[in-house]
């Protein structure tokens, strides 16, 4: 009982870490642009594939003989994937979102565009790689630390640490730096900010770089933890992470982070106590009830309509 309880907590922490990292990406873009970036889950998927491609490339052409430390490979892979994912994120913003913003299109049209970008990424990937799942190469040797029956792999520890580090990093950027201040300012008032001499578009590009890099970290780590990749993996995780972010209170980094973990815990607990079939049903019901009772989530601030 005791051991399974702790085992579940470890598993939930790891599972929640992924939701949190993705939710943070949603939250950043939403906080600045009030845009539900529905393509974000798919950017996460693309990141996982990029990691897969790059590591396969490394093994095939560079480290042919093997014998290289897995940590070194990870250390090379992460920045490369982060870079390419950011390029993708910024490309989408420049080509699809910004022109609409500048034409003064209704907010929802940008959301629809995001949905369409997501579809293109999913199905483009499907057309390129085919429907069969890809296996993410195992780069880090799994070592298991177990005490009194609780198994903790080094990967799980890595994922959980990564989630907390990225969260702390984002908190610092948003709250302590000048560009973070600009990001918060834009979310308050889109119209007055350009008048203050803040380069709005630069800040937005920076936001997309941050969000995509986060998705990249999550994607590579996810590939390492659950090595089966398929083009639709980002969609479901993405939608769920977004709902989690809203339950936490979207627009608030702390809220998105906690929301991700909350969803992770709920899902793992349901799987261990009921059945995995009911996972989605019960977790969504719980989230729905939370949202009905507290519509703005835990940390969200109600925007009162002024009468």
């Amino acid at each position: 009982m005791f051991t399974s309880f702790f085992q579940n907590i470890i598993n939930a922490l790891q599972w929640g870490s992924f939701y949190s990292m993705i939710a943070l990406g949603y939250c950043l873009v939403y906080g600045v642009l009030r845009l539900i970036n529905f393509a974000h889950g798919d950017i996460f998927m693309v990141a996982a594939y990029l990691g897969f491609i790059f590591i396969t490339f490394l093994f095939k052409y560079i480290f042919v003989g093997g014998g290289v430390s897995g940590w070194l490979i990870l250390a090379i892979t992460l920045p490369v994937v982060m870079f390419f994912t950011s390029v993708l994120g910024v490309f989408i913003e420049r080509v699809a979102y910004r022109p609409l913003r500048e034409k003064g299109a209704h907010r929802l049209y940008v959301v629809i565009t995001a949905l369409m970008v997501g579809l293109i990424l999913e199905n483009g990937n499907l057309a390129l790689f085919g429907a069969s799942s890809r296996k993410f190469p195992a780069i880090i040797h799994r070592s298991v630390i177990s005490f009194s029956g609780v198994h903790i792999t080094n990967l799980k520890v890595l994922v959980i640490i990564a989630a907390f580090v990225t969260f702390a990093f984002l908190q610092a950027i948003v709250n302590k730096t000048k560009i973070g201040m600009a990001m918060r300012a834009i979310s308050y008032d889109k119209f007055a900010i350009p008048l203050m001499g803040i380069p709005v578009n630069k800040v937005i590009v920076f936001t997309f770089i941050l969000g995509s890099s986060l998705a990249a970290v999550a994607g590579v780590l996810f590939g390492m933890s659950y090595p089966v990749l398929n083009p639709y993996m980002g969609m479901i995780i993405g939608w769920k992470a977004f709902i989690a972010a809203v339950v936490g209170g979207i627009g608030d980094i702390k809220g998105a982070f906690l929301g991700g973990f909350l969803l992770g815990f709920i899902e793992i607990l349901i799987v261990s106590f009921f059945s995995s079939n009911l996972k989605d049903l019960i977790s969504f019901l719980i989230l729905l009830i939370i949202l009905v009772i507290k519509p703005t989530g835990f940390y969200g601030v109600a925007k009162s309509t002024k009468i």
Binding site: A96, P99, L100, K103, A105, Y109, I112, T113, L115, M116, V117, L119, I120, E122, N123, G124, A127
Partner: peptide
Amino acid sequence: KWVIIPLLLILLMQ
């Protein structure tokens, strides 16, 4: 098809 249609839509919205 599901790449072409979203692309067309994005173009339409531009």
